[in-house]
Each structure stands twice: as C-alpha cells, then as structure tokens.
Design a protein around this nucleic acid. Structure first.
Length: 816
RNA sequence: GCCGAAGUGGCGGAACUGGCAGACGCGGCGGAUUCAAAAUCCGUUUCCCGAAAGGGAGUGAGGGUUCAACCCCCUCCUUCGGCACCA
C-alpha cells in the first residue's frame, strides 16, 4: 500500500461544491404535482455591521439539515433566505458618519451572504430578498393600505413612548424598565400623533387560534402577553356630576366590598374631580407622576402613593358615598383607567387602604362566617362565600360573579366585559430608514403657511406604490417628532389638481418588513401581485420555522396579526402561517457567559471555517447538545468533530469492493440509518451525530469498507456535512450531486438484535449479565443463570419470594 | 412576587414507554509510532475502599410510590428565561 492518499481538505472541497451547487442551481425550489412539500424557514437576519456570529448558523444548520434530508426523502423543499434590512443601526451609523444607510446595508448584506454561502446552506438564493428593496417595500405598503382600508390603522394622539436620544417613538414592547430595548436610553411618555394598528381587534383569535400549532412554550407566552380577563364594567355615579365613573373589575361579586375608588393620574376626569382644598395637591401629584419613569412608577415602588380628590362616587347598589382617590398604581392605559377598590380581597387595594387608613370590609368569607377585615395583615383573594352582599349572600364566588353581572345588566348599571393586556400597536417611527407610510394629507393653502389636515388621511393609490424614500444627506432625528423626512420638503409636499398635499413623514417600525417576508418568498419576482395563488398553494403554510426565542412574542405576534388580516381579506387561505416553531438555544462563550465584544468571548464563524472547515462548524454546532438548549462553546469540541470527519474521510474515501459487511457491522449500519433518520425528524441532531461516530469507529476497524456501505454512510452524513458528503459521493462513483439521491433504506429486521445481554439482579442490584434471546421464556432465563456463581452467591441459603422477568430487559430475583 | 425550563463524571452531554446511569465527544492518565515533537493509533478514565477478585456509594437536597426511579408523586434549594401593581 504505497499509494499516497489524499487527506481530507475542507478548504479545497467546500468552495468547490458551493460553486457547483450555484452553477447547477441545485437548490432552486420547484414544485412537482403530487409530491409532498416542505417549507423550511429561518428567521432572516438583520445584517449588522459585525457580520455573522456563531449563533446564526445554529438554527440555520438545523433547518438546513431538515431541508436536505427531506429532499432526499422525495419532498419538494422551499428553503429561502433574505434580509431584514431596515432598522436603527444603519441609520445611527449614517448619523455618525454621513454614509447613506443604503450603502451600509448593501455592504453588510454582502458580508452576510458571503458568510452564509461559506457554510453551505442549501438556500434557494434566486428568491433572496431584502425588506429595503423597493419591490418589497411596495407590498409592505400595500398591506398597510389593506389595514387602513379595514379600519385597522388609525391615528391617535395618545401618550406614547418617546425616546429623545433615538429621536423616535417606541412600541410598548420595545421599552424595558422605562428604557429603550435597544441602547437602554431613557423613554418618556408624551402625547403625539401616531399611527396605530388595531391588533386588539384580533386579541381573541391571536390567543385561541394558537391551538393546534406545534409550538413550544411560546404559545403560553403569547397567551400571557395577550392577557385576556373576563369581568364587568360598572358605572358609578359621581356626587355633584352628571358624568359617570366607569370602572372595570374581574370581581363583580365583591362590589359591596368597595370602600373607595381610584382613578389613574392620566384619567380625563382628574381635573374636574380635584376640588377644593385638595385640588392643588392632586394636580401636583399628577404632574409628579407624569415625570416619573415607568421604572419608578412600577416595580420599585414599594409603598403606594396617591391623593384624595375631594370628590365622592355613589355606589350604584347601596348609594354609599365612596371617596375618589388618584393613585399611580392604577394604569391609565388598561381597562377604563379607574377601579373600585375592594381592599379586603385585593392585595393592592389592601396596601393602599392601609397606607391611607381607609376602611376594609369583608364580603367574601372563606368559611361563611363574618370576620373583621380591619385586623387582617393581607387581602384574601381566594374564592369563598359572599357575605354582607345582599342578594349575593351565601353564593359561591363563581355563582356570585354571574349573579352580579346579571343584576347589573338587567338594571343597566353595568355590562359583561372582556379586557386584554395587549395594547394596540404604535406603528409609526420618527426615523428615516424605514418604509414610508403610504398616506398623505390635504394642506390648507400652501406648504409654507398652510395647515396640514392630519384628520383627513388619504391612502396613496395602489398604482403609485411604492412610496420611495427621498434621498437625504442629513439623517439626524430632530426634537421635532415629525421626523427627518419632514426636512425633504420637495418629497413631502406635492400638488394634485392645483391643491397642495403633504405626505406622512413617519416611517414604519422594523417589525413591518418581517411581518410577511415568508409570503414574498413564495413568489419574489411577481410584479403584478404580492404573490400568485399558485405559488401560495404550492408552498404554504410554513412547515418549520426556526429562530430565536427573543422573537417569541413581538415578531411572532405581529406576523400572526398581519396574516389574520390578510386571511380576512381573503389574500391568504390559512388562519395561521407557521405550523411548527422551534427556537434554537443561545450559544454562550467558552467562559459560560453571553458572547459579547466587551467580554471578549466572541467566536467568529469565519475563523472556525478557516481553521476547521464549514462542515466541522455545522457538525459541532449540532453536536453541542439539544437544539433548544443554551450551551457554551468549546473550541476543543470542534477539534473532536474535525477528527471525526478526518476519520470519515480516511475510512470511506478509499472504500472498494463489494464484499458483504460482517453481520455485526451490517446490523450497526442499518440501526444507524434508522436512528439518524428518526433523529432528524425529531430534531435530535446531537444524538444522530453520536450514532454516526459509533458507526465510523466500527467501520474504521475493518480491513476494507465495501463501497455500498460507504455510499449509504455518505448519504446519511450528507445533510450534516454536505461538502464532505458530495466529495465522497463523487469519489464513490456518484455522477451528480447527492442532494436528490434517495435516503438509504434499512431492513427493520436488522435493526433489532434477536439476542441481547440483560442484567441479572438480586434484590434490585445487578450481580451478573446474561445473553438471552429477546423472546426467551422465563424458564429459559432462569435456566441460563441457574449455575451463575455471581448470582448464587447472593441467593444461596435464601428463599426466593418473587421473580421479575421482563424479556429483553431485566431478570430480578427477590429473595429474603 | 408570578409563570416557564433545567439541575447527571473534571467539561459538553446520552439514557426507548419506569428496567444494566454516564453512550458519543472533550479533557486527563498510560502505551505504540518518532532522533524528537505534532499528528495518528491502542488502552484506560463517576467516586470511595481494595494489589486484585470484589464490595460500597452515586443523577441538586429530603421524603414517598415500586421488585426496580435520572424518569412518577410531595416538600425544598439553585440556575437560566419570560412577565412586572393589567384591577
């Protein structure tokens, strides 16, 4: 054996196959009638300036393995990739350097694309798209118009989260602890004109239609986020006012326990209710709260604060006078911004009552007896029996709630009501690098002096889409919340039929583009429609959606909302877009900490590819542990994987002949084929790799590996290590890419051993092992160990009380 | 505080439906090869006692069910993720 053998050289074979796949358009998605289909979607990345990090390839490799496997299983596969390319970083960079965001974005995309290509993902690059493409923006705006036409996009002047540093308004979801989610800049609440999407109109469906989806815990997170609660709205009279004070409660059964009322500082009635000597203090309190950050107002506020308005509400059922307080623990943005306070049965009300020495009256008793709630140390919010409650007395809580609501409705004092924590989606941003909102307004007179009639929004004609961004040189946000687009006067103002109009200068948030990209992938080149019905029917819904759990609520809720609107508009045919959802876990640095530049523990995929090869990176990321688990990077682990691939190469690359494998190897091969297939279906990539390692270790011991076995192994390895797979396949006589080669079959009979070694226990402790036929009878099993010294040593002189025998598993003597 | 997930060798992690805990990989140790090293190959590697045979302990802690528990039940601890006064 003097022939010099070539070594495994990923640096040579990886670019070779990447180029060949591209030239031969190997992965262009085509649909063949009658074949099953798979739409495998990755959450497309924001192409940041720092390039890919090792977290990206984790999910991408997983979906790529499934895609490649399914192709070999005869599926038509749609596996696309694109760019979520609008967003703040490019704009911030533009502000700092003057480089146009389009330039930065294009160069970042080029970097990302080069990196993704170097990893050998089987994307159909002919469907590549970026949310910033005019051709894409056109349809994003088109969908906005659908929302507008259906009354789901409206302007409001409500208090919003204005971030002075970023110069924009943020969604509630983008504000964490009173700071911007990106950058951690302070956020204040200001009333501004905003475009808002009526996602609350879909709250019920967004919650209930999750059922039936194959999603992880994320379903629950969304349900919690939507936060449905059932209760009643009740109108209280106000002494000396004709207006009513409307409150929402989930505990109408405790109405007789209300001892005071609380309204939020933002409540519109605050000015008129704050009277007499109390007025000044109330207004001062209101102003103080307004300047507080959300942080101060919520989590850390241990003691309750508030002020008495001087006004009284009239209890609708017993006519009692209840003092009306203002306190910031009541939120202006939830329910009616006002509550009836039942301190005996609500902890917050209880604390407030203690703080301000207000009465506490028990109206729900745990045992039916009367107690003095003034002596309690905390509220009792558990269900019980209604007391001191007139017609409710003696009723259990559930029955009492129903009876009270019935009574309120029949006497027109209140109504049944469902409330949601979910708020409408503040959709406008005062920034440059986003989709222009395709709306314009009449101008009274000319642009210089005229007033813009924001109350008369007009939809841009569909024919005139997309509304493109004007070229700007100065991207700085200003204090002026109309945003930088307002400075492009030539773009903003235009004349039609002799009249002046002004375009909307707010842009859409980054979420907009990612709300529907999976739909454009169906038919990205379509110039006349958002997508053809044929393309839709070919591929939808998305069968597998892989992405980070950081998008569990925001992106996935927004996208589902848009999809349902499109469903109602009969543009899509499924109520839900994503059938199965998987979140890859985070990859930590070697020191078990989150990867970050400041911690200096960032691993660059380019370096790993250079040192070990793309296939090693792919395999390693799948071998680290369960896909969904958080797990630390270990460079030595990549070394181990590279060793495995070296061994695969040296074992298979020079396979020859067709001498049959020995029985044991043959069985192992068939077991491995079965296991790898099943593991891919279950996304258990770590264990399938381990199974392949075991097989190679076995094959490497053989003098010679027959070609047929080498080919079968090559095929099952190929979804994981596609470059190595192709190279081996070629050496083993393959004429063309193995991408569509049928997945190897296995003989079920060879995957089960008919003789197995089972443990022999005495009183539950393993004392010996014995080889037995899988289906051996108890008598046979007993006979097989009858003279086993290791067993006899522990049974001798004792009486057998029981024998547990599970064929193929265990033999356990119970003696005493 | 509430909700969710998870705790297994020195490390990453396996373990079917309750049936031999520690597969596979890393690291360690010993050896082969080499002038030497790297690479590669072989052996070994949960802990404790023991020269060995063997014995004992062991899956965050404590209890329980069972012939048998990483797996099921109860209590508790820790870590991670999410939510944050939503009436």
């Amino acid at each position: 054996m003097s022939i010099e053998r070539i070594k495994y050289d990923p640096a040579a074979i990886e670019p070779k196959w990447q180029q060949r796949w591209e030239e031969q358009r190997t992965f262009e998605a085509k649909r063949t009638p009658g074949k099953p289909k798979l739409y495998a979607l990755d959450m497309f990345p924001y192409p940041s300036g720092s390039g890919l990090h090792v977290g990206h390839p984790e999910g991408y490799t997983a979906s790529d393995i499934v895609s490649r496997y399914k192709r070999m299983r005869g599926f038509d596969v749609l596996h696309p990739m694109g760019w979520d390319a609008f967003g703040l970083p490019a704009e911030q960079y533009a502000i700092e350097t003057g480089t146009h965001p389009a330039v930065t974005t294009a160069s970042n995309i080029a970097t990302f694309k080069r990196q993704l290509r170097s990893l050998g993902f089987s994307y159909d690059w002919s469907r590549e798209l970026a949310t910033t493409d005019n051709d894409y923006v056109r349809w994003t705006q088109w969908i906005f118009l659908k929302l507008f036409q259906r009354g789901l996009a409206y302007q409001s002047e409500t208090p919003v989260n204005w971030c002075p540093v970023l110069g924009t308004v943020l969604a509630n979801e983008e504000v964490v602890d009173g700071k911007s989610e990106r950058g951690g800049h302070p956020v204040v609440r200001l009333p501004l004109r905003q475009w808002t999407l009526k996602i609350t109109a879909y709250a019920d469906r967004l919650a209930s239609e999750l059922e039936g989806l194959e999603w992880p815990e994320t379903k629950k997170k969304q349900v919690d986020w939507i936060g449905r609660s059932e209760g009643a709205e009740v109108d209280f009279g106000i002494e000396g006012h004709s207006e009513k004070l409307r409150i929402f409660t989930t505990r109408p059964d405790t109405l007789f326990g209300a001892t005071y009322m609380v309204i939020a500082p933002e409540h519109p009635l605050v000015p008129s209710l704050a009277i007499g000597e109390h007025r000044a203090a109330v207004m001062k309190y209101r102003d103080e709260v307004a300047s507080k950050s959300d942080m101060d107002r919520t989590a850390l506020a241990k003691t309750k604060t508030g002020a008495f308005t001087g006004s009284y509400a009239i209890h609708p059922l017993n006519g009692e006078k209840l003092p009306i307080w203002v306190a910031d623990f009541v939120l202006g943005s939830y329910g009616t911004g006002a509550i009836m306070s039942v301190p005996a049965h609500d902890q917050r009300d209880f604390e407030f009552a203690k703080q301000f020495s207000l009465p506490i009256v028990e109206v729900v008793s745990r045992d039916g007896q009367l107690h003095d709630a003034m002596t309690w140390t905390e509220a009792e919010d558990a269900d019980g029996v209604a007391v001191r409650s007139q017609f409710l007395d003696g009723k259990g809580t559930t029955a009492a709630k129903a009876a009270m609501i019935d009574h309120l409705e029949s006497s027109k004092l209140g109504t049944r009501k469902v409330q949601y924590k979910l708020r409408d989606w503040v959709f406008s941003r005062q920034r440059y690098w986003g989709e222009p909102i395709p709306i314009y307004f009449p101008v009274d007179g000319d642009p210089e002096t005229g007033k813009i009639r924001y109350d008369q929004p007009i939809a841009v004609d569909e024919q005139d889409l997309p509304v493109k961004l004007p070229d700007l040189e100065d991207f700085k946000p200003s204090d002026d919340p109309t945003g930088p687009l307002a400075r492009a006067k030539g773009w903003r103002f235009f004349q039609k039929d002799g009249k002046w109009f002004a375009r909307e200068t707010n842009t859409m948030p980054q979420w907009a583009g990612s709300c529907w990209y999976y739909l454009r992938f169906l038919d990205p080149g379509n110039q006349s429609e958002i997508f053809s019905q044929q393309a839709y029917d070919d591929w939808m819904p998305v069968d597998l959606y892989v992405g980070g759990s950081e998008h569990a609520v925001l992106h996935l809720l927004y996208a589902r909302f848009w999809h349902k609107v499109l469903f109602d508009a009969k543009i899509v045919k499924h109520a839900e877009p994503f059938h199965k959802l998987v979140h890859q876990g985070m990859i930590l640095g070697e020191n078990n900490e989150k990867m970050s530049k400041s911690r200096g523990n960032v691993v660059n995929p380019d370096d790993v590819v250079k040192q070990f090869g793309a296939d090693s990176l792919r395999l390693y990321e799948m071998f680290m542990g369960p896909l969904e688990a958080t797990k630390p990077w270990q460079t030595n682990g990549v070394v181990g994987i590279r060793r495995f691939l070296d061994r695969v190469w040296s074992t298979l690359a020079y396979a020859e002949g067709d001498a049959p494998l020995d029985d044991e190897s043959q069985r192992l091969l068939h077991k491995t084929i079965k296991k790898v297939g099943a593991d891919i279906e279950g996304l258990h990539f770590n264990t399938s790799i381990s199974a392949m390692m075991i097989l190679v270790n076995r094959l490497a011991e053989l003098d010679r590996v027959p070609v047929s076995a080498a080919r079968a192994f090559t095929l099952i390895l190929s979804p994981f290590a596609p470059h190595l797979g192709e190279e081996l396949w070629e050496r083993l006589g393959g004429q063309r890419s193995l991408a569509y080669e049928p997945w190897p079959s296995f003989d079920e009979a060879l995957t089960v051993d008919d003789e197995v070694e089972i443990a022999v226990q005495v009183n539950g402790k393993v004392r010996s092992r014995v080889k037995l036929r899988k289906d051996a009878s108890e008598a046979d099993a007993r006979a097989a160990v009858a003279s086993d010294e290791a067993v006899l040593a522990h049974t001798r002189g004792k009486t057998e009380k029981k024998l547990v025998y599970v064929p193929g598993r265990i033999l356990n003597f119970i003696v005493g």
